[in-house]
Amino acid sequence: MIKVGFILGIAGACRTDELVNLTVDDIEDVGSSLITKIPRIFVVVDVGNMLELFRKYLSLRPPLVKHKRVFLYYKAGKCSSQPVGKNTMGKIPSVVASYLKLPDIFSDILTDAGVDITTIKRHAGWKSTTVAKGYVENSIENKTKIANQVLVGTTTSAITKTVNVSESNIPSNINFENCTNVTFNLNANK
C-alpha cells in the first residue's frame, strides 16, 4: 500500500485526500501505463516494476469489498475491506523518507529535478504561482546553488562576456582567480 501510494502520489502530485478518495474506477490500465483521473488526469508510466506492483496490489483486493476505494488496510498478511484513512495516507512521505534516511521526500522532488514553475503548477494542479515558487525557493538543490554562489563564489550558470579588443585597447592584465570551467573563444579579424 505504501509503495503504490507513493508511486501514485509522486506521479500525480496528489494531495492526501485525493489518494484516500481514489477509486478503482478512477484508474484505467492501458497496458503500458495507467491513466488516472482525480479531478485532473495524470499518467503513470512503466518504469521499473511500477505497473506490476500496482496490478499486484489490486489483485489482492478481496472480492466482496462494498466500496471502490483503491487503498485498503492489510492485517495479518491479508488485505481487509477497511479503507485507508487520511492520517495513514498522510504518513506515507514520512515512512518513505525514514526508510531512505532522508529528511523529506515529496516537497523537493520536482524542483530538485530542475522542473520549471509552470510545469510544477500544471503537474500539481495549482493555480497559484506563489505555492510553486515556495517549493522552488525551499528546494535543497536551489539552496545549495545559492550557498555555493554566496560562500564559494561559484555559479552553475554560464556567464558570457564579449569584449572587442583592438591593438590600442588591449588590457595590460586580466585576472581569472578562482575560476573553474572557463572557456575562451577567440575570434581574430584582420
Rank of each mutant, 00 (worst) to 15 (best):
T154R: 10
V84L: 15
Y74N: 13
P93H: 08
V45C: 02
V4L: 06
S98A: 14
S107P: 03
C14Q: 14
G9M: 03
P62M: 05
V182Q: 02
L51I: 02
V163P: 03
T119E: 14
A113W: 11
W126T: 07
I7M: 13
P83S: 04
K161Y: 10
E52K: 08
Y74G: 14
C179F: 02
V115G: 01
G85P: 05
K75I: 07
A188S: 11
T111P: 10
T129M: 12
G114K: 11
N175L: 13
M89I: 08
P63K: 05
K121H: 09
I35H: 06
K56R: 14
V20F: 03
T23D: 09
A188P: 01
L151Q: 12
Y73K: 10
V70E: 02
I7R: 02
V131F: 08
N187C: 04
V182F: 03
V47R: 13
V131C: 06
L60S: 11
C179Q: 07
K78T: 01
T144D: 11
R69T: 09
Q149F: 07
I117F: 07
W126V: 09
G90E: 08
N87K: 02
A147T: 09
S128R: 08
F106A: 00
F54A: 03
G5L: 08
D29I: 02
K190P: 09
V65C: 13
I117N: 11
T154K: 13
G125P: 00
A132D: 00
T162F: 09
P93S: 10
I117R: 15
R55D: 05
S32I: 01
N175V: 15
L100K: 13
N148D: 07
N148T: 05
M1S: 14
R61N: 06
F54G: 05
G134F: 08
R69W: 10
T16S: 07
V95L: 14
L53D: 12
G9F: 04
T119D: 15
I92P: 09
N87P: 00
P83M: 08
P103N: 12
N173R: 12
I35R: 05
Q149I: 05
T16M: 03
I140M: 04
L100H: 15
F6M: 01
L19R: 00
L60C: 09
R40L: 04
V44P: 01
D116M: 02
S80C: 09
G5T: 08
Q82H: 03
L60I: 03
S107H: 09
V30I: 14
G114S: 15
R69K: 13
T162P: 01
E18Y: 06
F54I: 13
L186G: 04
K133C: 12
D26A: 13
P171E: 08
S98M: 13
I38Y: 08
A132T: 01
M89E: 04
C14T: 06
D116W: 05
F71N: 05
